[in-house]
Amino acid sequence: MTTSTAISCAGVSVFFDDFRALNKVSIDVKAGQVVALIGPNGAGKTTLLNALSGRLPQTTGRIMLGGTDISRVPVHRRAAMGLGRSFQIINIFPEMTVRENLRLGAQPHKFRFQPFWRDVSGWRDLDEKACAVAEEVELTDVLDTPAAMLSHGRQRAVELGLSLMSDPSVLLLDEPLAGVGQAEIDQTVALIERVRHGRTVLLVEHNMDVVMNISDEIIVMINGEILMRGTAAEVQADPRVREAYLGSGDRDA
């Protein structure tokens, strides 16, 4: 495992008028690590992911992907540079089949110059890439099913698959288990375990059992700031973390 930093930010703040959603947050994630962001609702976890992926412009601070400053790079260029993300709410192309979803995900990265009149189903490379990712996220059996007709857990897999189409080196996952039924949680966790190979993962998740199991490190956030950072054991043992959770009365596990 290399020890270079895959993604980092320094002094990143996001203000909504007077409200400080993020206050001078600095993190760095080493290549190959799985790092979880936890904290009570409103702690700024999703805001941090939004700032990293470029969905929300940061008010101050700098964001680095590998050795490149991406603070001012628009969302679609960050995606092309190897930053993939999934969303808390399922964010896929509902009217398209799984195959069409994945094919579309590969399109911006695989073919820069394409004659517009060529039928998209004729692009063998796109299809092969879509099939390969479908296999990775276990969607091969529903390739030609419209995405809207899949179960929630499998739509999650489409969501994850879409994030993988650009061959990202860094994956930002926003509550990958949100809304997934108990029966499908193990499958989804296995999926995350599989796609983390060769990638760096920063995820936001409320399911503590899962977080403790799959993360190398955990960052605890509260009120837009970082409270502490450590291994699962260190975080569980820290009295401040308990207070933060118990104090807010919010413990989704």
Binding site: N91, P94, E95, M96, L104, P108, F111, F116, W117, V120
Partner: peptide, 20 residues
Amino acid sequence: SPLGQAIAGLKQNEERARQI
């Protein structure tokens, strides 16, 4: 065409289209 598919994606989910 690929462009047509991208346009369909734009309609169905602009945010996702940007994110991929």
